[in-house]
Design a protein around this nucleic acid. Structure first.
Length: 260
DNA sequence: ACATTAACCTGTTGGC
DNA sequence: TGCCAACAGGTTAATG
């Protein structure tokens, strides 16, 4: 469930490592290293380097090092970032609540005694050296209405599938998507190019507002719809039983009455 | 080129 | 009570 919001929270929690030198790296699970990298490759690329900046595009966290290498961190759906022995987010909506050493997939140690851990029980996350950033669309926190129209509101594919497509707009996950569409009053199964100008504008405004609100509230699971996102859940506004369908390959909850 | 589906991973949940 | 299939969601490979 880490969506763009959680990754931004992780990124901010990593502030204490900025400007510091990496003294060692630990890759207990080489499977977690993507694109053919080995523990040795990673070690050669990062040990002794200083962290210049941290960035984020969508759900991808980026750590820029003094030698020009960028370390990309992906969290899948159960990945958490911990600084020293605690994380900014203690538990995730659909993951195990516990923290276990065996679930630590990647660890960086710094000259200020800090340690950064990537904890991921389900191993759907990963570490990528110099990830291809061009594969990601504009970030959901700041996408303009123009770009939303150009990149997302095109074609006859279901609107929800478009919103989840990371190369068109980056950072939206299943929960933010359902919440945004519900708040917008627009059905997830509408063709992406079928929105009226008014709906296009509403969707853009609502997306930015929803992202901002959920971020301030501390996670993508804090939306109004979330408590009813289960079988036989009811619409918080009108009490109708929510529809449950697979759209864009993901379980989707929406209100058949007020989402048009 | 584009769209859809399946596979990946594994801890938790719910039905029998 | 125990077993096991279904489920969760982000990503990518495979298929249509």
């Amino acid at each position: 469930m880490p969506e763009g919001i959680e990754v931004e929270i992780y990124r901010q929690a990593a502030d204490p490592i900025v400007g510091h030198q990496i003294t060692s790296v630990d890759c207990p699970d080489e499977w977690f290293l993507k694109e053919g990298a080995t523990a040795e490759h990673v070690s050669d690329a990062v040990v002794g380097q200083r962290v210049e900046t941290t960035r984020r595009i969508g759900k991808l966290m980026l750590v820029d090092l003094s030698n020009g290498v960028t370390v990309g961190l992906r969290f899948g759906m159960t990945g958490r970032l911990l600084v020293d022995d605690s994380g900014p987010i203690d538990e995730l909506e659909y993951g195990p609540k516990a923290t276990k050493d065996e679930w630590v997939r990647f660890r960086l140690s710094f000259d200020n005694k800090r340690q950064l851990f990537l904890h991921d029980p389900r191993r759907l996350g990963g570490v990528i050296l110099d990830p291809d950033e061009s594969k990601l669309g504009d970030d959901m926190f700041s996408i303009t209405q123009e770009r939303l129209q150009e990149r997302v509101l095109v074609g006859t594919v279901a609107l929800k599938a478009r919103l989840l497509d990371q190369k068109r707009v980056a950072g939206i996950g299943n929960l933010i998507c359902d919440e945004t569409l519900w708040q917008s009053g627009i059905r997830p199964d509408r063709a992406a190019n079928s929105l009226t100008p008014t709906e296009q504008s509403t969707l853009h405004t609502t997306l930015l507002q929803t992202v901002e609100t959920l971020f301030k509230q501390g996670g993508s699971h804090t939306g109004e719809l979330q408590s009813e996102r289960h079988r036989a859940g009811h619409c918080p506004t009108d009490g109708t039983e929510l529809s449950r369908e697979k759209i864009g390959g993901r379980t989707t909850y929406y209100c058949d009455v007020h989402q048009k």
